[in-house]
Computed example of a mutant assay.
Amino acid sequence: MLGKFKDKDFEAIRNSALSRQTPSNLAGAFIISIPLLWLMYFLVFYVAGDATGDVTNYPLFSEMMLICFWISIALTVFMVLFTIRVIYMKFQKIQYLVGIGLSHALFGGGTYLAALFIIGKSDKVSADVLIKITLISLSTMVIILLVTVIRFITLLNKGAYRRGTAKDVQRTKFEGYSYVPIVVIASTGFVITLQIIISNYDFEGLNQLIVIVIGFLVAHVMSFVLPEQLVILYCKYRFKSFNFDNRGKLYYIEDDH
């Protein structure tokens, strides 16, 4: 599907997004993120899920806790490795993949699970209701993901991500209109999910409601961000110009040689 495009077709993304995500910047972010990752694990499973006290009623909580523990271990090991210059410069693509996993572990999966676990601590919420909430929210995120992919391909075919063309100037306009269906889908799924939550859950305070709303909102935002991250990863594997030289500079676009 993307094979017919050249690196110049992705140049706007390369210059705007990837130029800020140099291997050295990612390495620095990994150093900061290691304690944040384990803080998120603690907050999700020992505060929101309350593993040692009033445990959430969410199905398979213990199994999910164990799986997330090993995922966190794996991410930590990779993050430590990719703070070493000789490694991250040689394996830039894998480093970027680890960065994608980290971003979704912190800002997508973590906040989303925290929201679900807090809902599951109410005696009024059955396992069936929790599963219904999960399915609706996940379905909405999958639809957002698919619409975003279609939107991206449409813009790509229009040349909206090429630099220095008339369509590059129009890119902002195209993207602005293409946000509309995504916003509608996200809003609809978000409202339906909240209606189920409010009708089944007795809130103990505003703080819990805020965590739930933020958790679902951030998860939906991350499903919108994921396609561009995957496209950049694809381009890093396909095009040399999406990778960095030893000076930390992006290689030139192939057609510019």
Rank of each mutant, 00 (worst) to 15 (best):
Q95N: 09
G101K: 04
D50W: 04
A51I: 09
M64I: 13
G99D: 00
T83M: 10
G101C: 06
D50R: 13
L75V: 02
L97A: 15
C68Y: 09
L97I: 12
F82W: 13
M79R: 08
A51Y: 14
M89F: 10
A51N: 10
D50H: 10
V80E: 00
L66Y: 07
K93D: 04
Q92N: 13
I73W: 05
M64G: 07
M89I: 02
L66M: 07
S62G: 05
F78E: 01
Q95L: 06
I87C: 05
A74Y: 12
M65W: 00
F78P: 01
G101R: 04
V98G: 05
M79F: 06
K93S: 12
S72F: 00
A74M: 11
Y96R: 12
G99E: 00
I67E: 00
T52A: 12
P59W: 08
F69M: 10
T56A: 09
V77S: 10
I71D: 00
P59F: 08
F69Y: 08
T76W: 00
L66S: 07
G53V: 03
K90R: 15
L75P: 02
A51T: 12
V77F: 14
E63K: 11
M89C: 01
L97V: 10
K93I: 13
V86M: 06
F91A: 14
V55L: 15
T83F: 06
I73K: 04
L75R: 03
F69G: 02
A74T: 09
T52Y: 13
Q92K: 12
S62W: 12
Q95I: 04
G99M: 10
D50G: 03
E63A: 11
I71F: 03
T76V: 00
L81C: 13
V80W: 07
T52E: 01
I73G: 03
V98Y: 08
F82D: 01
D54G: 04
I100L: 09
